[in-house]
């Protein structure tokens, strides 16, 4: 069998408002580059084929599977990861709601759910509990049974729009 050249590319990636230069093979996924080249290990990898959603990040504001994007494709885009949510050591309202509702147990899926929820709430601020449930069905959690995740995101949606959950 042949071994194609690894064709390294010098990229500038914009992640969490910082510019990073990396040299990577084009086959390297954005998830791997975030985790292993930039050492932003909050983004997790659970399936590498776009189903579990543990690697969900925001690309130009929209939730995306970082395992279904080659890092070379993300040049020029604004990438946001779970590391961007807390500010000055303070948890964001969504992170706080996850804690309050016990929406995480082992915590492995949590960064993906947080980033998915941020993307969903940004686009659908008026989302109902059932809208949220349907949107969150994009990601897998093996610990919680989902109920408390839905609760946490719904509570955040309600507080952001100034209504009661």
């Amino acid at each position: 069998m042949s071994h194609p050249v690894n064709d390294p590319h010098l990229l500038t990636l914009s992640v969490n408002d910082a510019e990073h230069e990396v040299v990577v093979e084009p086959r390297r996924t954005l998830a791997d580059v975030l985790r292993h080249d930039l050492r932003l290990t909050g983004t997790h990898v659970g399936c590498e084929h776009g189903v579990c959603g543990a690697c969900t990040v925001l690309i130009d504001g929209a939730p995306a599977r970082a395992c279904l994007v080659f890092a070379v494709q993300a040049e020029g885009a604004d990438v946001r990861t779970v590391e961007s949510l807390a500010r000055d050591g303070e948890l964001s309202d969504l992170q706080q709601a996850f804690g309050d509702h016990h929406a995480l147990q082992c915590g492995f899926c949590t960064p993906g759910f947080l980033m998915l929820a941020e993307g969903v709430l940004a686009e659908q601020p008026d989302a109902s509990r059932e809208d949220i449930r349907e949107a969150l069905s994009a990601n897998l959690c093996r610990c919680t049974g989902y109920q408390t995740i839905v609760d946490a995101v719904h509570a955040t949606a309600c507080s952001r729009r100034g209504t009661n959950a």
């Binding site: 993307g119 949107a135 069905s137 994009a138």
Partner: peptide
């Protein structure tokens, strides 16, 4: 069509 993250890309 899939889920939002898939539909977005």
């Amino acid at each position: 069509v899939g889920h939002l993250p898939i539909r977005s890309r």
